[in-house]
Write a protein that binds this DNA or RNA. Structure first.
Ligand SMILES: [Mn+2]
Ligand SMILES: [Mn+2]
Ligand SMILES: [Zn+2]
Ligand SMILES: [Zn+2]
Lengths: 139, 139
DNA sequence: GTGTTTTTTGTAATGATTACAAAATTACTA
DNA sequence: TAGTAATTTTGTAATCATTACAAAAAACAC
């Protein structure tokens, strides 16, 4: 996606499209790797002059509050971020630690009987071993 | 459940049923409130003489590894523990912070096409506002 | 361009979890 | 049952992720 489109997208969601914000969103959108703060920092420190880890925390918190990113809590010791806010599930591999998407339609998710409850977010995630790592173990 | 039953249950799962382990599992089973470590500590410190928070961490980690408890990562800043390892979903209320169960059958959970993947755990959780808190807000 | 508001930065503080070695408990054996 | 070895628990210190905060920098408005 072009930086122009990213800027417009942020603006539409009430976020002023400042340089670093656009770069961080751009990173999330292009890599699609559900990175942690440290992964983002490690990659963008080379591209953005004088980037602070605190800024990444600030910007990501803003993104999540504004609804343009999701914070995924699959493992207790790390938070992963996702610019894809549509309905989908996540698989985390115990071996390579990668997180990948899988498609599920909203209608497929069971709708429990929670009378009078307001539902804001639905999360479905699976843990296990991905096919690549499963093959390596077998060999 | 009786302490006897708890002991037998732990033993069957390869866990030596020491006093504090039994007390902690007993707490989890009877309260069913998906407590954090601090919640367990705050409650059991009165019952168990000289209980250390480190012990609770040790015992819960052992429980999770042995498969007699689940660690729930609904929010990034807390881990909640559950002695019910059967298939069910969780709802967390943003207002009162309570976590409650909802029943879902294994067959209801969508089975994504993950060719060659090994699935170990499936988690489904919902965030929102519970009926009790929703009523209070309305009033 | 000047002054004002917002954002970013760097460092310190916080909070949860783990590491570790000593003390206590439990299990085993004579 | 006493003695000994193995396991568990404890208390403290270390670690790691995240937040707080005030100063510096950048963006904005006139
Ligand atoms: Mn995703
Ligand atoms: Mn539960
Ligand atoms: Zn893998
Ligand atoms: Zn509530």
């Amino acid at each position: 996606m072009e930086q122009q489109q990213i800027s417009a997208y942020l603006l539409k969601n009430g976020i002023r499209p400042l340089q670093k914000r656009v770069k961080i969103m751009s990173y999330l959108v292009s890599k699609r790797n559900h990175p942690t703060v440290d992964m983002i920092y490690g990659d963008l420190i080379h591209e953005i002059n004088g980037l602070s880890k605190t800024t990444i925390y600030n910007v990501l918190n803003l993104f999540v509050q504004s609804g343009v990113a999701l914070a995924l809590n699959i493992e207790g010791n790390e938070v992963r971020y996702d610019a894809d806010t549509s309905t989908h599930g996540h698989f985390k591999c115990k071996i390579c630690t990668g997180v990948i998407d899988f498609r599920i339609r909203q209608e497929e998710l069971p709708r429990p009987t929670l009378e009078g409850f307001r539902i804001d977010e639905q999360h479905y995630y699976i843990k296990g071993v991905c096919s690549f790592c499963a093959n390596k173990i077998e060999a």
